[in-house]
Design a protein around this nucleic acid. Structure first.
Lengths: 163, 163
DNA sequence: TACTTTTAGTGGACAAACGCAACTATTCTG
DNA sequence: CAGAATAGTTGCGTTTGTCCACTAAAAGTA
């Protein structure tokens, strides 16, 4: 006599094959991106820099490259200049960076970090590296390096930074 | 006598160091995700499935798992049920899938592919795999596999599919 | 010098997407 | 049967980002 069949969905989540996506960059990148963003938002709770869509990169770049220009950052984070402008506005409101006109180029601006921004940058650095290693838990050191190398190469190429 | 200094920005894009982000998963994932999404949108031009935010995964999953439930897909693409519902609505409008009530569970639904959906799925499979290999251009076969393995592991863990 | 083109930044309008919370209906647990 | 959990729907609000037009300045050209 057959065991009573349990109801449940025809394809339980754990066992669903992902079709070709199983071997595809885009799917994992997209999904992991979602997970990573949410996780990061949690970790940044209340830190003036939540919703880390570019704010974090901007903060760290301004901190480590005093006088860097908005348009340069825009290119690195792959946003257009208007989006970047708004991002800068926000961060100025939060007193994290300052904006001044470039002395040698009337079109351009220079961004500088504030006290508060620098403090935050220190915290964010810790958080970002911690998150990275948490997500890599269980992945051998050597593979981590290898993975980052590959991602770096792909990134530089697609951002148009190479050649 | 010094060479005439060229003007240009203080930190040209190509040379800007990314601070700790240089060694951080989140930055690359986020950026590559942007690049990948835009590129994919281009390749899907006019294909009824543009803005591939989950549509692609849904399409392929429904195609390869007839009767799969919305909530299962939602979990795989990390969205909440309401977002998933709207996604399904759209795809039904585009005549890519159909929705019917599950015979054995009054709460649930079953999704099925349409003719048109199946056609599209075939095309999308080609496009997705092509894109993946394009982005991997220059990365040795072996490293590609390795990378996908790691991403898969990270994904499965963060999606709560393992253990 | 006068022109044209390119680059940097701003502002507005618009749209798409997502999450949350509340609600219904069904099923499961005990 | 009562209460908890699950599937799906709907409305609401927010965020985010893209497109486009516009100004100002600099670079290229002749």
């Amino acid at each position: 006599m057959p065991v009573k069949k349990k109801k449940g969905p025809p394809y339980p989540v754990e066992t669903v094959g992902l079709d070709v996506l199983e071997d595809t960059l885009s799917f994992y990148i997209r999904s992991i991106n979602i997970a990573l963003s949410r996780d990061l938002d949690d970790r940044l709770e209340g830190l003036d820099v939540a919703r880390g869509t570019g704010k974090i990169t901007t903060l760290l770049l301004v901190d480590s490259h005093p006088g860097i220009r908005p348009s340069v950052i825009a290119q690195l984070i792959m946003r257009d200049r208007s989006a970047m402008g708004r991002l800068v506005d926000q961060m100025i409101d939060h007193d994290l960076i300052t904006r001044r006109n470039a002395p040698d180029d009337g079109r351009a601006q220079e961004l500088h970090i504030t006290e508060k921004g620098a403090d935050l940058a220190r915290k964010v650095r810790k958080i970002a590296t911690k998150q990275s290693s948490d997500f890599f838990a269980g992945v051998p050191e050597k593979d981590q390096k290898r993975l980052l190398d590959i991602l770096r190469r792909v990134y530089r190429r697609t951002a148009g930074l190479d050649q």
